[in-house]
């Protein structure tokens, strides 16, 4: 079956079976492999994308249900990794193996778009759903905090 999808502000038509998770449409059909497969049951967060601005597990989103929605993947977050959350990830040198990090970044960026001045505890709660098997949690926590303060600063400059 054919489905029309809007991903990273581009339109795609894909021919897949209904019931196919968005994750596999991205990875196998559209070569958007930044979204990672971790568990297939929505428990690990490696496949996190934004759907209409909200962080969602793409392994749990069937293709027929995301037609007409605005989908953003890690590839669409910025052109060259200059989104504040990505910048903070570089400053803190977060990744070890790096496999879960696109999901971490997508969770963090959706969270910071809603909560502009999160407390340490709110950051820890927001990131609790994303597994990092290398346990780079200390640095993830720091990077989310750094991104949030940088996003605040750039806002104040604009005002």
């Amino acid at each position: 079956m054919k489905f029309d999808l809007t991903i990273n502000k581009k339109n795609y038509t894909v021919d897949v079976e209904d019931g196919t998770p968005l994750l596999w449409v991205l990875r196998d059909e559209l070569e958007l492999v930044g979204t990672k497969f971790g568990c297939g049951i929505g428990e690990c967060g490696a496949c996190t994308v934004h759907i209409d601005g909200k962080a969602e597990r793409s392994c749990q989103q069937m293709v027929e249900l995301v037609e007409g929605k605005e989908i953003t993947t890690i590839e669409g977050l910025s052109e060259n990794g200059e989104y504040p959350v990505q910048e903070a990830w570089k400053t803190i040198d977060v990744p070890q193996c790096g496999y879960c990090q696109s999901g971490q970044i997508m969770t963090a960026s959706a969270f910071l778009n809603k909560n502009h001045q999160p407390s340490k505890e709110e950051i820890r709660m927001a990131m609790h759903g994303n597994l990092c098997r290398c346990a780079s949690y200390n640095r993830i926590e720091k990077a989310v905090g750094l991104a949030s303060s940088q996003m605040q600063e750039s806002k104040q400059v604009k005002v």
């Binding site: 890690i74 990744p95 790096g98 696109s102």
Partner: peptide, 10 residues
Amino acid sequence: NVDIDPIITG
């Protein structure tokens, strides 16, 4: 990490 750019941009 030398792979940090490809990691954070997917």
